[in-house]
Nucleic acid binder design. Structure first.
Lengths: 219, 219
DNA sequence: ATCTCATGTAAAGGGCTTTTACATGAGCAG
DNA sequence: CTGCTCATGTAAAAGCCCTTTACATGAGAT
């Protein structure tokens, strides 16, 4: 008996790569209908197997979502690392890329982003997931270390605090304004511009000299 | 036939105030099991009515959640307005209260907060809900107006931008760190302190004089 | 060639959502 | 008071999803 509407290549009794197929299905379905609208059964149908088959690969629906979130954090880490590029050519420019990469990820990978931050997955029950999240944050933290490292020791703020500030700010903008089609509010400026302006103002507040143009009078 | 495990006062065939009872049930259930775990049927059971009764008051499950979100925005607006208190005694102190009120609301009313920001309710399909959200933001916007109003016109940033920055920052901290028991990460400082520090740094970046102590070396 | 075990199926129980037809009784008109 | 009406609630049912259990298949090892 054939289960799939989407016949991705004929197969016999065994699928061959069901786990990956389920993850891909989850990504498509979460993107289309949100994490709440995603169902285990539909992922199974999409992959062309019976509703019970997914249980051979995931304890339950939540574990599949957690796996998607974990993969999302890995991709996220890669995107951030690539944007940061060791802080070259200068820390400010690299930080700017980092922020834009965060927003871009939220916009272009809404399914991952949902699974990571909005699906209500309990971080503390899955060590792998938690570790993946830590790795993503570590990129930001390392960037903050480099940022404050350029400052005179006397006026140097805690790098962890700076990392948390920038993460919070960026995450807030991403959550509120930078989602796909279901944007919660229309803005008079692009989320990227909003973030860049905030970032420059914040840097000036830290005493960084290089921050200029932050308070231009655009309205 | 009796449906309720929770017999909140005996009643006859008609409940008398089912709509309110359902909203209260939704709040308890969302708080206990998250917006995803909340079910229409359980709310009905909780209120002591049959599973079909709620449909006399809400088109479907989503409309109930949207109603909860709307009420949440109203409470939120009241909390923010009360904290702002017209910017007295001075703008900075009032802004500080505003931020703390935001975090407090997220922590003490996780059910409202979830319904408002995490349940994936489409803002654009419900005018009432959208309007309630606008009213909440209007408090923050008015506060930002007052903040930048104290600045010399030459160095005055757009109030809307400032409002969006502070909203994003606060929302980011609330979402990432200031939730109830399911905190996504443990912090070396209280979310309130984190917010206050960021706020002071941001104000210094705007050129506000009154911001001091923002970069103390606590670690 | 055979065995084994990971992977998939069938079937079933239980719950949720939503609709439809019917029941109740609160409030109002006469 | 009597009786009508309609908002409000119930019962029943169809459809879907989640998850478990017993059974089937066949890929890879021996």
């Amino acid at each position: 008996m054939r289960w799939g509407k989407h016949d991705h290549g004929s197969r016999g009794y065994h699928h061959g790569n069901l786990k990956e197929a389920l993850v891909r299905a989850a990504l498509e379905l979460i993107e289309k209908k949100g994490p709440a609208g995603f169902t285990f059964a539909e992922a199974a149908r999409w992959a062309g197997v019976s509703p019970a088959a997914p249980y051979r690969h995931f304890r339950d629906r939540d574990e599949l979502i957690a796996d998607v979130a974990r993969r999302g954090f890995d991709e996220f880490t890669a995107a951030l690392t690539g944007a940061w590029e060791d802080g070259k050519p200068d820390v400010i420019a690299a930080f700017d890329r980092l922020g834009k990469a965060y927003l871009t990820f939220a916009k272009r990978e809404p399914a991952y982003y949902s699974a990571m931050f909005e699906a209500g997955v309990p971080l503390d029950t899955d060590a792998e997931l938690r570790a993946a999240g830590e790795r993503a944050f570590a990129v930001l933290r390392a960037a903050a270390e480099k940022l404050v490292g350029d400052m005179p020791a006397r006026a140097r703020p805690p790098a962890l605090m700076v990392a948390l500030h920038i993460w919070s700010l960026t995450h807030g903008i991403a959550s509120l304004f930078s989602r796909g089609d279901a944007a919660r509010r229309t803005l008079p400026m692009a989320p990227e511009e909003l973030l860049e302006a905030a970032f420059l103002i914040y840097l000036r507040g830290l005493g960084l000299p290089s921050a200029s143009g932050a308070t231009d009078d655009r309205d």
